[in-house]
Design a protein around this nucleic acid. Sequence first.
DNA 1: CATGAAAAGGATAAAAATGTCTTTTAATCT
DNA 2: AGATTAAAAGACATTTTTATCCTTTTCATG
Lengths: 143, 143
Amino acid sequence: MLSNSSKYAIKGVLYLAVNSNEDRKIMVRDIFEMIHVPEAYLAKLLQELSRHNIISSTRGPKGGFYLSDEDRKRTLMDIVRVIDGEKRIKSCVLGIKDCDMDNPCVLHKLVGANKSKFIKVLQNTTILDLVEGKQDIEEFFPI
Amino acid sequence: MLSNSSKYAIKGVLYLAVNSNEDRKIMVRDIFEMIHVPEAYLAKLLQELSRHNIISSTRGPKGGFYLSDEDRKRTLMDIVRVIDGEKRIKSCVLGIKDCDMDNPCVLHKLVGANKSKFIKVLQNTTILDLVEGKQDIEEFFPI
DNA sequence: CATGAAAAGGATAAAAATGTCTTTTAATCT
DNA sequence: AGATTAAAAGACATTTTTATCCTTTTCATG
């Protein structure tokens, strides 16, 4: 449902959400161990998110990745959309042709109802929402 | 969440549920086009299920795959367990170490609640359950 | 404006998932 | 018994995902 890459990306963004801001940028080198994602791989994912304006970055000395206030309003779905693409997550649970969220097959009634809810959660949950229960998340680093 | 292989396997078993019984065995050759799964690939999956006694089969002329009455009491989870393994489906949504259904991390509260329900559906839905709404399913072949 | 720190990007490698093919085994029919 | 049919089994091929490496570009700073 979610690729590994998306999971990594979400973990990385969550870490940035808790630990970074415009005045406090973080290098990939200081994140990857905390969240158990290979350094070069995480760099690629964060670069991709940055390129799509989901997160922010600056190069050079004192540079690094960070979340602006605007970035914090992004949803989990924004991340997943960039990394996995919309199609992957919305496709039919059983890979049935011409069957999707809007035109659900019989098994969607069973299995897809939950999936729809899952997608709604992704769409409705912003980074900020997650960080508001901050103490809970901090407990979980390193994740 | 569910691998392609599991989806194919479920489709194959559903087709058997609707069209086969002990006296009416079906060859892979007569299934694969109906459910849009490559012939050899489907064969392999059904063999695997048969080996684990999730479905039934006999070799030779008049042979083929079929579902016994006992087979029909199997749940979707029985299929998924054979094809994907229990670990894959129950692992943490974010791949967080030492986090699973029984020891959920903070994101499980958000995202995992739906997943738990999804797994419950798999565990509680038998092949027979699905076929009892038979007309609905038949409408969907070929899937 | 030179320097070094950091992201960006391209090329490639490794692993996992998906898919195909060939040979072997067992059941049935003549 | 022998021929034929179909699943069983396993080796092999392809594609996608995951991961790494290395060079280039950018930019803050002294």
